[in-house]
Design a protein around this nucleic acid. Structure first.
Lengths: 318, 318
DNA sequence: CTGTTAGCGCTTTCAT
DNA sequence: ATGAAAGCGCTAACAG
């Protein structure tokens, strides 16, 4: 019976048929948990995906891509929401380790991922997504944040803007730091002084971004263009522009594409990246590790693409 | 050792401490798969969530709520995307059954769910989400689709609209059918003839909805208001209105709330429901079943809420 | 309260 | 090519 269900070759046709018949007569369902217990490679054919927030549209798409790749290998996917909380991440990792997942796809939260080392030594493959882990060498798939941000700012400068505001998240967050640095590099390349009053980082969310944008736009020498470093900040800035009725005066390019960006007025120009590619690349790398690849950790960078829709192509006034 | 890790009371403090010390000295990680194998209740402390499409914003929020409830019970969650495909649903159920999940939360796809009966007999609890299963008695948590749609149409009628178009999905889909019927009931209550030229159902997606809306608005006796039965159709209709520059002339209420609805111009009035409540209720019901509740299947209906934002409060012209 | 043992459903190995 | 037996890590039941 075992040789039939595991698909081994050394079974005569007659016996195989007889066993298969019995299987669906008795409603036999193979138990993969017991299977993993005894298998030499100890695999359970499950992986875990740790995601910061499943409500972000980007993450849903990525999750879908991961499930697609896993499904091709008959592998089931645990998904856990970590909500940007290092403690929850540790708990989720421990929980999935108890279930003996073959591998873990992690969007790292928190300042220290060295604790993942022991899990890896215990045989769990690990690939990081969207940002590199701290204090751990591991495969990672990231967006080309610096270049994407620089392209956005250069694009605004090319429309003639000289007072370009940069609205970004906390510098403690890798993604925000990279994007902010890319934007500042581009500003410097334009001869602008990035130390000026138009840089607001450490913004924590949409409400915060709205307040910061409002203050900038109402202040002295207001910016004629905005670069926003991620979805939540972009929406906050848009709310500020609407409230001040400046949405058709001030240019805007945001990092991260989002649904309905083309339906807003003006339509929102963005730096887009490809969440399907990210999910695919990360999952494929994970399965390579699970299947025994022992080469040095890889960092794969997914390119970005500027999507001009109107808000970023507006020249400065006068 | 076993009595310590399972948290049984019959262990002396001294021994417990000694075992715990050894546990983290040796890096012991309990294997929950082996545990489920031997436990009398046979539980693995995992459940599965079958979702039609993880990219829908609604589903991400619901998934989050389910994970929250499951996490409180130290239960891990498999998530599988079924993509509205009955075959994929069966495969996903079989795959998770091989992993011996304690329960399954399913957004049913396809015309026949009687096959779930055998899984339930084998001990897997089942709760359906968003729509009832066909040919199977099971717990279900649904939105109050009929009433929500009726409220939307009545709201438009209350603004004075008499030519209200109904744009809906295929009647083979439970959700679309219910919403369409609710809308037609409300039309009849207003004395309108729902058999008229302003009803377009069987729309398959955003592109289709855009074409249908365009045709209606360009046709003879065009509607002065639109009701759209779900997110994809709402966005299609909005695109049509924009293209015809009618977005400020024709009223619109859509079923399903969505991010940025308030940032569109006009802001989009919607019938919203609460995906967090849905996820919670369904997960709680599932755990009740897992813990042995054998009462008759329950149908829980989550109420809707009309969110007026502007597009639905516009009176007809003249 | 603690030590020991059997056996969950499976894969692997060894013997035919 | 097939049968039989051992044992994966755990829990439950049985002794002391």
């Amino acid at each position: 019976v075992a040789r039939v269900v595991t698909g081994e070759a050394t079974v005569s046709e007659g016996l195989a048929v007889r066993v298969l018949a019995a299987i669906d007569e008795l409603g036999y369902r193979r138990d993969l948990n017991a299977s993993g217990l005894r298998r030499r490679d100890h695999r359970t054919e499950t992986i875990g995906l740790l995601v910061d927030d499943p409500r972000r549209p980007f993450n849903g798409t990525m999750q879908q891509a991961v499930q697609e790749i896993a499904g091709e290998r008959d592998c089931a996917v645990f998904v856990a929401s970590v909500d940007h909380d290092a403690g929850r991440e540790r708990d989720a990792v421990a929980s999935l380790a108890r279930r003996r997942v073959d591998g873990l796809l992690i969007m790292p939260s928190g300042p220290d991922h060295s604790y993942l080392g022991s899990q890896r030594r215990a045989g769990i493959a690990i690939v990081c997504l969207d940002r590199p882990p701290a204090r751990l060498e591991a495969d990672v798939v990231v967006v080309d944040n610096r270049v994407g941000a620089a392209v956005a700012v250069s694009h605004l400068a090319a429309q003639g803007h000289r007072r370009i505001a940069v609205l970004g998240g906390p510098r403690s967050a890798y993604v925000d730091r990279e994007r902010c640095d890319g934007a500042l590099d581009a500003l410097r390349a334009q001869g602008a002084d990035p130390g000026d009053a138009h840089v607001r980082v450490e913004l924590t969310g949409a409400a915060d971004a709205e307040a910061a944008a409002t203050a900038l736009l109402r202040g002295p020498g207001p910016p004629t263009a905005l670069f926003t470093s991620r979805y939540a900040i972009t929406t906050g800035a848009i709310r500020a522009l609407h409230r001040l009725r400046l949405e058709h005066e001030v240019a805007l390019v945001g990092f991260d594409d989002f649904p309905l960006a083309d339906l807003l007025r003006p339509a929102v120009s963005v730096v887009a990246h490809d969440p399907v590619a990210m999910g695919r690349l990360a999952a494929e790398q994970l399965f390579r590790r699970i299947e025994g690849d022992r080469t040095a950790p890889r960092c794969q960078v997914v390119p970005t693409r500027l999507v001009p829709r109107g808000s970023g192509e507006r020249p400065p006034p006068r």
